[in-house]
C-alpha cells in the first residue's frame, strides 16, 4: 500500500524487467545449464542442425512459455475468486475447481482414448464449472470457513473418485501427471490453442474491472449501489473457472500459486482491479517460470513441491494475520 494512486503504473517496468530476467534464467538453468548467449542465439537465430539450439528451442522454450501462461492464468483466477467469494483464502485448488477439472479430464480420457487436447480443455472446463456451481449454490459464499471446508471435502471426494477409475482401468501413468503437476511435455501447438482464449477471457475480466472493484465493498453495499451482483458474480466466476481449467489442462493441479500471487500484488498496489489483474498475471507468470526452473534443477521434482515450500507458510501467515474474520 506504499504506492499512491498516481504512480502505480511505475511498477510496470520493474515487472517487465522481472519477466525478462526470470525468462532468461528459466531458459538457462535446468538439468543442463546454458549461457545467456546460447539462449538468445537459439531463440532468435534458430539453427535446425545445432543440438543446443534444438534442446533450447524445441524442449525448453515451450516448457517455459507453458509455465508463464499457466502461472498467469491460475493467479488471475485466484484473484477473481478472492474478490467474488469475499474470501482471502479462495483459490482454484482450495475451492476444488482443479479437482473437478482433473476428474473430468481423466473421465474424458477414459471414455474417448483418442481425446484431443481441445477435448481435454473442454472436459476440464465442464468439471471446473460443475464444482464451482455446486460450491456456489451450496454455500452462497456466506460463511468463509464453510466455503473452504466445502472445497476441501469436494476435492478429497473427487480425487478418490479419480483414483477409483485409475485403479480399475490402469491409467496410473496418465493421471500421475495431472495430480502432481508440471510443465514438462507441453507443445508450442497447445500453447497456441490456449493463449488466445486466455487473453480473451482476461480481456473480458479487465473490462469488468470496475464491477469487480464494487464487489470489494460487500454484497449488500454493492447491491444498494445498483450493481447486478448475481450477474457479475456468475460472469466473473465463469471466466475464472475457464482460466483455472485451461491451466489444469496444460500443467495439472497447481496449489497455492493462485493464493500467494494476488496477495503479494494487493500488498503493493492496493485493491483496484485495473492494476491487480495485470500485475497478478505478470507476477504469477514469472513466479511459475522460476518455480518450474527450481523443480528442474532439483532432479525434476514436481513443481507443486517447490511452490508448497513458499505457499504453505504464506497461507498460514495470511490466516493468522486476518484471523478475526474467520474466528
Amino acid at each position: 500500500m506504499w504506492l499512491t494512486m498516481k504512480n502505480k503504473w511505475l511498477l510496470m517496468p520493474v515487472f517487465i524487467a522481472g519477466i525478462i530476467l526470470s525468462f532468461t534464467a528459466a531458459m538457462m538453468f535446468g538439468v543442463e545449464n546454458y549461457t545467456v548467449g546460447q539462449v538468445f542465439s537459439s531463440v532468435f537465430n534458430y539453427e535446425a542442425g545445432d543440438s543446443v539450439s534444438q534442446i533450447l528451442y524445441e524442449i525448453r522454450l515451450p516448457r517455459v512459455f507453458a509455465a508463464f501462461l499457466a502461472g498467469l492464468m491460475i493467479s488471475i483466477a485466484g484473484l477473481i475468486m478472492q474478490t467474488v467469494t469475499h474470501n482471502d483464502l479462495s483459490e482454484p485448488s482450495i475451492l476444488g475447481i482443479n479437482a473437478g477439472a482433473n476428474f473430468f479430464i481423466v473421465i474424458g480420457a477414459l471414455l474417448i482414448p483418442t481425446l484431443s487436447f481441445v477435448g481435454m480443455v473442454i472436459g476440464g472446463f465442464i468439471g471446473g464449472m460443475l464444482v464451482g456451481f455446486i460450491i456456489l449454490f451450496v454455500t452462497r459464499f456466506k460463511s468463509p470457513i464453510h466455503l473452504i471446508l466445502a472445497g476441501a471435502g469436494i476435492s478429497l471426494f473427487l480425487y478418490a473418485l479419480t483414483d477409483f477409475f485409475v485403479i480399475t482401468n490402469n491409467l496410473g501413468q496418465y493421471v500421475a501427471f495431472f495430480t502432481s503437476g508440471g510443465a514438462a511435455g507441453v507443445s508450442l501447438g497447445q500453447i497456441m490453442i490456449i493463449a488466445p482464449f486466455a487473453f480473451v477471457v482476461i480481456g473480458a475480466l479487465y473490462f469488468l474491472a470496475k464491477e469487480l472493484d464494487i464487489f470489494l465493498v460487500g454484497d449488500e453495499m454493492s447491491a444498494s449501489l445498483g450493481q447486478k451482483n448475481a450477474l457479475y458474480q456468475i460472469i466473473s466466476l465463469v471466466c475464472a473457472i475457464m482460466l483455472a481449467s485451461m491451466s489444469v489442462a496444460i500443467v495439472g493441479n497447481i496449489v497455492f500459486l493462485g493464493l500467494l500471487v494476488p496477495h503479494i500484488v494487493k500488498m503493493t498496489v492496493g485493491y483496484m482491479h485495473k492494476y491487480t489483474i495485470l500485475y497478478t498475471g505478470l507476477l504469477g507468470g514469472s513466479l511459475f517460470m522460476l518455480s518450474d526452473m527450481v523443480a528442474r534443477m532439483l532432479n525434476e521434482t514436481p513443481v507443486n513441491a517447490v511452490i508448497s515450500m513458499i505457499g504453505l507458510p504464506f497461507f498460514i501467515y495470511i490466516i493468522r494475520q486476518r484471523g478475526r474474520q474467520y474466528a
Binding site: 496449489v255 507443486n304 513441491a305
Partner: peptide, 10 residues
C-alpha cells in the same frame, strides 16, 4: 486444510 494441501504437494 492448508497443511494437508501443502504437505501433500511437498
Amino acid at each position: 486444510i492448508a497443511t494437508a494441501m501443502g504437505v501433500t504437494g511437498f
